[in-house]
Amino acid sequence: MKAASRPMIEVSGVSKFFGSFQALSDVSFSVQDGEKVVIIGPSGSGKSTILRSINRLETIDRGRIVVNGMDVSDPKTDISKVREEIGMVFQSFNLFPHKTVLENLTLAQTVVRKRSKKDAEEIAMELLRKVNIAEKAAAYPAKLSGGQQQRVAIARSLAMNPKAILFDEPTSALDPEMIGEVLDVMKNLAREGMTMVVVTHEMGFAREVADRVIFMDHGRIVEEGTPEHFFTSATHERARLFLSQIL
């Protein structure tokens, strides 16, 4: 099939405006199946906006985004079908506070995937064990630490068997001692071959896991390349400046 050779995510010529402010200018990149792409850049550079555009949490004004063969930028596309296949992990976890940890994982499985309660719970428990938090299955999110909540959020996303997962600054809201446990879970996922697009400030993670690093500034992609290239010999001055400040 022809589709097999297409990238999992293809972003081409995307621009977006918030009023008169241009948040994205002509952004293009693609993510292959199994690839791990890390997007970095100063705050306000548009990195979260482009990530959120991939599953249409933000609409775009110009350009085209195709995910898994489906045109996200076409208003006629059933966006739920795209979102079923693309997981998302948020900075603020966004667990459902009125549901237990287990129910957080089973809700979309039963409602969207139409799995039986029993199947959904089995899958959920397996994933909770995988992210090392099975003992909290019956607890409500408010009783969990931030790191625990984020691991549950990753498991919730995995429960839908996504083809790719988008991470929007997954460790930025965490206390420093909890960042490690979340990054470990993400590294494990990467090793298993999950397609990942990660917006983060964790340069260690980028260096260790990324196949490719994209540096954004002022709504544009300024520099793109392998971590070795990026961290040792970035060509663009702004990228070098950013690295010198953050490292």
Partner: peptide
């Protein structure tokens, strides 16, 4: 919080399902 709706939608729920399962109970 807006993130609740976004999280539900990101899991593939329709707006109506998200409203019923996630937003309204809270």
């Amino acid at each position: 919080p807006k993130g609740q709706m976004e999280a539900a939608l990101s899991l593939g729920m329709s707006r109506r399902q998200a409203m019923r399962q996630v937003i309204l109970p809270q």
